[in-house]
Nucleic acid binder design. Structure first.
Lengths: 116, 116
DNA sequence: CCTAATACTGTGTGTCACACAGTATGTCTA
DNA sequence: TAGACATACTGTGTGACACACAGTATTAGG
């Protein structure tokens, strides 16, 4: 089964795990879903609505975000931001991410090991 | 629903997308599953057997790897390596990975607007 | 022999990104 | 004032996949 162009699929998979961290990175200050989505897109991290909204609800369920409805001008919007737990976890995940990056770079380099 | 310690879960999710790329990075030369797993572990990328073996079969199905049984000393082993298609795709995925890394670093930086 | 390490196969489960669809409000403009 | 379009959120279904768990067979060492 030779896939016509597997690239988009694998590229998507790469981004997958990073989405949670990307969202958290912008939620030190409160954002609502739509604005967060636009913000991430500006940085080159495009996320579908059907991905981002459930993600935010999930993270709130897991205690990493808190949210509240706010009525300003325009429609009511649900604002999300990091909870205490989220603020605690976020820097650890950043460290994990960087550690993973370092591992990957080593793997790229060492496609053929020097041998001991 | 406050999760006791969500960290391992999220850390795992981060690694998830990278596993395919990690495996491919070491398959420029033929490896069998078990040796590949040990090799990745040495670099700090630990993958369960139940993850790696199906992954290799899947990548072969998708045309990115080819494999053959070899009988040497010891039990027969299935050796995997990048196919032509895999060799073509791999560098593109490395570029994608690095691009993603760059995006993430930007997000980390700009998450806490040190005030305008 | 007996154990442990090696090496692979197979099944089941839970999670999650995304597709797709739907609802409702706000804004612009002709 | 009506229509189109952007905004903003909710909900369901599906497919992919990492991992848990279990099983099989071979090999090496004491």
């Amino acid at each position: 089964m030779v896939v016509e162009d597997a690239f988009p699929k694998f590229e998507g998979d790469l981004r997958r795990g990073a989405i949670v961290l990307a969202a958290m990175s912008q939620l030190a200050t409160a954002q609502y879903g739509y604005s967060l989505r636009q913000r991430l897109a500006e940085y080159g991290m495009e996320v579908e609505e059907g991905t981002l909204y459930p993600l935010l609800r999930r993270l709130e369920n897991q205690g990493l975000l808190s949210s509240e409805w706010r009525i300003e001008d325009g429609p009511p919007r649900r604002y999300y931001m990091l909870s205490d737990e989220g603020r605690r976890l976020y820097p650890q995940l950043v460290i994990s991410w960087r550690s993973l990056s370092a591992v990957m770079e080593n793997l790229f380099k060492e496609g053929h090991p020097h041998d001991a």
